[in-house]
């Protein structure tokens, strides 16, 4: 099933994403930031659906919005935020940071204006019905080794997180 009204939804969703992103980096209250980030992530999941990647969209919702962000909210509630909310929000190197970001933005603009011809006009439309099966075949076939390393990474991360957060080991 092909996406309907692509331009409309693209602009709507990218608008939501950008506003969400701006809110993430400007809000004083980390909880508000987290909620804005969740909105951004959900909008991005919808964009994945428009890009014929339903499985990635599903993983995005479950893992990002359902898992990682709940973890974030949990930690924000655990540490007290009252003090840091009253303090200065931007660090002393913000001028340097902004100029670096501006330079990076300039770089992006330069690259994209120069190289926009190499992208084909009409993106391919892919078969969506067996997307999950194909991704699975790839994950467990071609990328088997990478998959195993990723699971190892997760294991290390779990142990690391436990070690970090534990009072006494």
């Amino acid at each position: 099933m092909a996406p309907v009204a692509t331009p409309f939804f693209f602009y709507l969703l990218s608008g939501i994403m950008l506003i969400g992103g701006i809110l993430v980096i400007t809000r004083k209250n980390p909880v508000h930031s987290a909620l804005a980030l969740i909105v951004t992530l959900l909008a991005q999941a919808s964009i994945y659906l428009m890009l014929y990647a339903p499985f990635v969209a599903g993983v995005q919702i479950i893992l990002y919005a359902g898992g990682i962000m709940v973890l974030f909210l949990f930690v924000i509630m655990l540490v007290s935020i009252e003090r840091s909310m009253k303090e200065r929000q931007f660090n002393s190197q913000w001028v340097v940071g902004m100029s670096a970001a501006t330079a990076l933005g300039g770089l992006f603009i330069a690259v994209y204006t120069k190289g926009k011809d190499i992208f084909p006009d009409h993106a391919l439309s892919m078969v969506e019905d067996d997307n999950t099966q194909k991704v699975a075949t790839m994950l467990y076939g071609q990328y088997m080794f990478a998959f195993e390393i990723a699971s190892l990474l997760l294991l290390v991360a779990i142990i690391g997180a436990v070690v970090m957060a534990k009072k006494r080991i």
């Binding site: 303090e87 931007f90 913000w94 670096a100």
Partner: peptide, 10 residues
């Protein structure tokens, strides 16, 4: 946006 956040927020 992410880069700006990382570089400027405390």
């Amino acid at each position: 946006l992410g880069v700006i956040g990382v570089l400027t927020r405390r």
